[in-house]
């Protein structure tokens, strides 16, 4: 089911961060969102996840307006910048966390474990994992809950380059296989190029569609604000 954001506005005390964001992400599409620090990318993901309420605008999944639903009723998979694995649970328990809410299933669990190469790590605690594996577990946990929308907020920011080269194609394959609309926030052009189907830049509180990473960087470098003011 496609994700549609209509006129999303949001302000922190004394500072308007989002000034009417409009965008649409189709099923199976991975949309990379670029933007400088503090431009509101993470805020936007939190609004889609239901962790923040927009001051104006609508979040629509398929034909369902979820703007005022709490996160637990939205069915959104969310991976924050820090993988935020539950430290007292094993890898398997982390992945299966949403099982008690009737989500996931044995087949999905096996598929995610296989695709993300987690078979040998299931009994480990998060503190025993490298950054790359922690991210894989966080992604598996989010997808196990069978989300209608996937949100990834700089999930590889703590992962070194070698691990990134390995994990990016795997993540892309899993996300494509899963087929939900995905918003992927990153600063890294290399990662964006390999992960994204479509690209968007966040400038001046709005998002601007661009054709590729090069254009995204150009918009950021030169005319971002002007383009955004449109």
């Amino acid at each position: 089911m496609p994700l549609k954001l209509e006129g999303i506005r949001f302000a922190y005390p004394g500072r308007e961060v989002l000034k009417g964001v409009e965008t649409e992400v189709d099923d199976g599409e991975i949309r990379v969102v670029f933007g400088p620090n503090g431009s509101g990318k993470s805020t936007l993901l939190k609004i889609v996840a239901g962790l923040l309420t927009p001051h104006d605008g609508r979040v629509v999944v398929g034909d369902r307006d979820v703007t005022h639903l709490p996160p637990e009723r939205r069915n959104v998979g969310y991976v924050p910048q820090d993988p935020s694995l539950f430290p007292h649970l094993t890898v398997e328990e982390n992945i299966r966390y949403s099982e008690r809410h009737g989500r996931g299933g044995e087949e999905l669990f096996e598929r995610l474990v296989d695709m993300l190469d987690l078979e040998d790590h299931l009994d480990l605690k998060p503190s025993e994992l490298s950054g790359g594996y922690a991210t894989r577990v966080a992604l598996a946990r989010a997808l196990f809950s069978e989300p209608e929308v996937v949100l990834l907020d700089e999930p590889l920011s703590d992962v070194d380059l070698a691990a990134k080269a390995e994990i990016v194609p795997e993540m892309r394959e899993v996300l494509k296989d899963f087929g939900a609309p995905t918003l992927y926030v990153t600063h890294d052009p290399w990662e964006a190029e390999r992960m994204g189907d479509t690209f968007e830049v966040m400038v001046n509180g709005r998002t601007v569609r661009v054709s590729d990473v090069e254009e995204a960087l150009e918009v950021l470098r030169t005319g971002g604000a002007e383009v955004a003011r449109g």
Binding site: E72, G77, S84
Partner: peptide, 12 residues
């Protein structure tokens, strides 16, 4: 973050 993730996974 931990609470945010738990809530998106279905926890009140």
């Amino acid at each position: 973050d931990l609470v945010d993730v738990a809530r998106t996974l279905g926890d009140e």
